[in-house]
């Protein structure tokens, strides 16, 4: 049994002039202890996928269709109280900006103890002992003193470590990390990612890492989903996707990395920008920016199918990748 199984997940936003589809029939699985990266541009639906898994979409967003099975249990229609028992307990989330995720008027200790007490019957002293242990695990110096401190007394990197410690409090089976290092200094970013990887590996915790950084994905995850305009357009093992991307968009993303360009040269960017969710083309969403688009791309949205080692949603993938081509393909 897989840890998480998402089928045809569709999320809509009820707007004044009709519904906007933010997630379109997203399906994927996650095995126990597996680490999955979700990459894509801003607005591709990465974060919405994360919040849907926690059943924490804020209105006007809602899950319109599909199922999310967490350890065999469908959580889409779970009553609020039951879902609350899962959140923070068996499934925990790390938010993007540690400067605003911790409550400014509660001490670190209060925010840790309340999380434990929400899910287990513990005395305050017992809860504090667990909190101190977890703070040690994320390499926070003098954890006993931290419990008395307020978030504003700590640096951004320190705060994100504390958020990670809070996530670990109840030994969850799945951690969803929504761009956990975007708001941090570059030097701290690597530390935090390393810490996260180490903790996930040692405790066999499933991880869903939402990011726009392909470099991070390649170091951290076993499998990768590439999202575009609310759909999964390519999915497979991270190594295959990085080394041999099949979808023209993924190829464009990898070619746009600075490592792919000689110093002093212009970065190879993908022309155009992602369509607004209110005006997604009726065919392939990437078609307006794609150099290989044909008539069928303009008229019919592509199905996601198995190709080579990955799954990919592209009509022209066979033409692009018939046999392994020489040189650059995009």
């Amino acid at each position: 049994m897989s840890l998480l199984s998402v089928r045809d997940l569709t999320v809509k936003f009820a707007m004044r002039d009709g519904n906007v589809t933010a997630l379109n029939q997203v399906s994927f699985d996650l095995a126990r202890g597996e680490r999955l990266g979700i990459v894509g541009e801003s607005g591709a639906g990465k974060s919405i996928t994360g919040f849907s898994l926690m059943n924490l979409l804020s209105s006007p967003g809602y899950i319109a269709d599909g199922t999310i099975q967490f350890q065999g249990q469908d959580i889409v229609n779970l009553p609020d109280a039951k879902m609350r028992n899962i959140r923070g307990n068996r499934m925990a989330m790390i938010f993007q900006d540690p400067m605003v995720t911790l409550n400014p008027v509660l001490t670190i200790g209060q925010q840790m103890v309340e999380t434990l007490k929400a899910h287990r019957r513990l005395s305050k002293a017992e809860a504090e002992q667990i909190a101190i242990m977890k703070l040690r695990q994320v390499y926070i110096p003098s954890p006993e003193e931290r419990l008395m401190q307020y978030p504003h007394e700590l640096s951004g990197g320190m705060r994100q470590r504390i958020v990670i410690a809070i996530v670990l409090l109840l030994d969850p089976e799945l951690i969803i990390a929504d761009e956990p290092t975007t708001a941090l200094d570059v030097t701290i970013q690597a530390d935090i990612m390393e810490l996260l990887l180490e903790l996930c590996q040692s405790a066999k915790v499933g991880l869903i890492l939402i990011t726009h950084d392909l470099g991070v994905v390649s170091q951290m995850t076993d499998r990768t989903l590439v999202m575009y305009a609310g759909r999964i357009i390519e999915a497979g093992s991270t190594r295959e996707i990085i080394n041999d991307p099949q979808h023209p968009y993924t190829q464009g993303l990898i070619n746009a990395l600075p490592q792919q360009t000689a110093p002093g040269q212009r970065l190879k960017q993908i022309p155009g920008s992602m369509p607004s969710l209110t005006a997604v083309p009726k065919g392939c969403p990437f078609e307006p920016r794609c150099a290989f688009a044909t008539d069928v791309c303009r008229s019919t949205p592509p199905e996601i199918v198995r190709h080579a080692h990955v799954e990919v949603a592209c009509h022209e993938v066979n033409r692009l990748h018939a046999p392994q081509q020489e040189g650059q393909s995009a």
Binding site: S58, G88, F95, D97, V100, T101, L102, N103, P104
Partner: peptide, 29 residues
């Protein structure tokens, strides 16, 4: 609407505690 209230929900905190501890204390300042 703040992130820390959303985060408190993600931790599985009961609604009354979110309203009267997390939110109200910040409201009263």
């Amino acid at each position: 609407q703040s992130e820390y209230v959303k985060y408190a929900r993600a931790k599985g905190i009961r609604p009354w505690r979110i309203y009267f501890v997390h939110a109200l204390k910040n409201t009263l300042l």
